[in-house]
């Protein structure tokens, strides 16, 4: 019997969570669009999304926006972040002739560079943090 009475409760809970999700999305999308707008007026090429990210951080830091307004929407978006890149990845099939002609050289250059940078930045950071903690 009580199950029938609790049905509206569960419905309310779902609607409440959905509402929170929508509120989070509206804030995140809004800040992204605002960042894109600001980006047009900056002298250096910073993507609008990165500006939006900085503003998001500042709004949370200055307690203008409480964390629970944007928490679940941001977790959801970040969980599926990889998916949003797939269409760009598929774009690799469109590579031009210059890439095909120098394919082997590019591959060698890329692998050597990214592995070196991966090693240098990761190790350097790890050792600096470690040293700071010991002293």
């Amino acid at each position: 019997m009580w199950q029938i009475f609790s049905m509206p409760d569960r419905l309310m809970r779902i609607l409440y969570n959905l509402g929170r999700l929508v509120r989070g999305f509206v804030i995140l999308v809004g800040l992204y669009l605002f960042g894109e707008w600001i980006a047009k007026y900056l002298p250096i090429p910073v993507p609008g999304a990165v500006i939006g990210m900085v503003i998001m951080f500042l709004l949370l830091r200055l307690r203008v926006v409480p964390l629970h307004w944007v928490d679940n929407a941001s977790v959801l978006l970040l969980t599926f972040m990889g998916m949003f890149y797939i269409p760009y990845g598929v774009g690799i099939v469109e590579s031009g002739t210059l890439i095909e002609k120098w394919g082997l050289e590019i591959l060698g250059l890329v692998l050597l560079t990214i592995l070196s940078v991966f090693f240098v930045s990761g190790k350097l950071f790890q050792n600096l943090v470690h040293k700071k903690n010991i002293s």
């Binding site: 999305f25 995140l28 999308v29 800040l31 992204y32 960042g35 894109e36 993507p47 609008g48 999304a49 990165v50 939006g52 990210m53 900085v54 503003i55 998001m56 951080f57 949370l60 830091r61 964390l67 944007v70 928490d71 929407a73 941001s74 977790v75 978006l77 970040l78 599926f80 972040m81 949003f84 890149y85």
Partner: peptide, 13 residues
């Protein structure tokens, strides 16, 4: 993608 990058700001906080 843009909103997801903005969501990184929440993670940073």
């Amino acid at each position: 993608l843009g909103p997801a990058v903005v969501a990184l700001g929440v993670l940073m906080y």
